[in-house]
């Protein structure tokens, strides 16, 4: 028996919006720790890792570990039927081939339930070891989204370089080239407007902008994004989900042959 009650139901809609462009079908894993997901895009270039901790739910009952295969477009269709202020409860019985989403209006005057068929999904689960990163950039998520969107209008790839000068995002395309340099800035009115660049070693890596732009669909989940770079590793783009957990995107770099 599984029963997860999320008072801020809109959070689940935002999570779906953040990942459904990257991943079509995925297994949601439920355990005593929380509600989680790890899935790769079809080309195995990018990976999304989601955790919504059990403590973040108003009520969290998960009698045994359960993996539920869902088509994310269908799940998004169902969640779209909830009101923005609704409380969402996810329910499933052991061994059932369906999951139920229950939506309650804040005043309890409207209660709906939507049942969705589950699917069997063969998914490869990757072990991602803890790593030391050469550079970690913490910046406003909206600024990162703007940079990715702007650069994608010029080129297909972005070179992210971190040096003593700051962090540089560069691209090149048929019509020209673009460079955006951000310097550390902590003299801001609100902490979420700060740009903090932590550099252990200079690093420069190339990534496909198409994936970066897809990651920025998570912007409504957090004001801050953290980008972790190491020359031998995929980049990690993390959006923290307040009091609940995180959504992390991993993207393999491109290398010159």
């Amino acid at each position: 028996m599984l029963e997860l009650r999320l008072v801020q139901g809109s959070l689940l809609k935002k999570v779906l919006d953040a990942i459904k462009e990257l991943v079509k079908d995925a297994n949601f894993d439920c355990s005593t720790t929380g509600f989680s997901l790890q899935a790769m895009d079809s080309s195995h270039v990018a990976l999304v890792s989601l955790l919504l901790r059990a403590e973040g739910f108003e009520h969290y009952r998960c009698d045994r570990n359960l993996s539920m295969g869902m088509n994310l477009d269908n799940m998004a269709k169902m969640l779209k039927c909830s009101g923005n202020d609704d409380i969402i409860t996810i329910k499933a019985d052991d061994g059932s081939d369906s999951v139920t989403f229950m939506f309650e209006s804040p005043t309890q005057d409207k209660i709906s339930d939507f049942e969705m068929k589950l699917m069997d999904i063969d998914s490869e689960h990757l072990g991602i070891p803890e790593a030391e990163y050469h550079a970690i950039i913490r910046m406003p998520s909206a600024e990162f989204a703007k940079i990715c969107r702007d650069l994608a209008s010029i080129g297909d790839t972005v070179v992210i370089s971190v040096s003593k000068e700051g962090v540089k995002f560069s691209t090149r395309g048929d019509i020209g080239a673009a460079n955006v340099v951000l310097r550390q800035n902590t003299t801001v009115d609100k902490p979420e407007e700060a740009t903090i660049i932590e550099m252990n070693e200079p690093v420069s890596l190339t990534f496909a902008l198409r994936y970066m732009n897809s990651f920025t669909k998570a912007t409504p989940l957090s004001n801050i994004v953290t980008i972790s770079l190491s020359s031998e590793l995929p980049v990690v783009v993390e959006y923290k989900i307040a009091e609940m957990g995180y959504i992390r995107f991993y993207l393999a770099p491109k290398i010159e042959e």
Binding site: S43, P129, Y250, K254, E256, E257
Partner: peptide, 14 residues
């Protein structure tokens, strides 16, 4: 020409 690496070149199946 830049070649796109795959995640499985970095991380192993758990």
């Amino acid at each position: 020409k830049a070649v796109q690496l795959s995640l499985t070149e970095f991380y192993r199946s758990a």
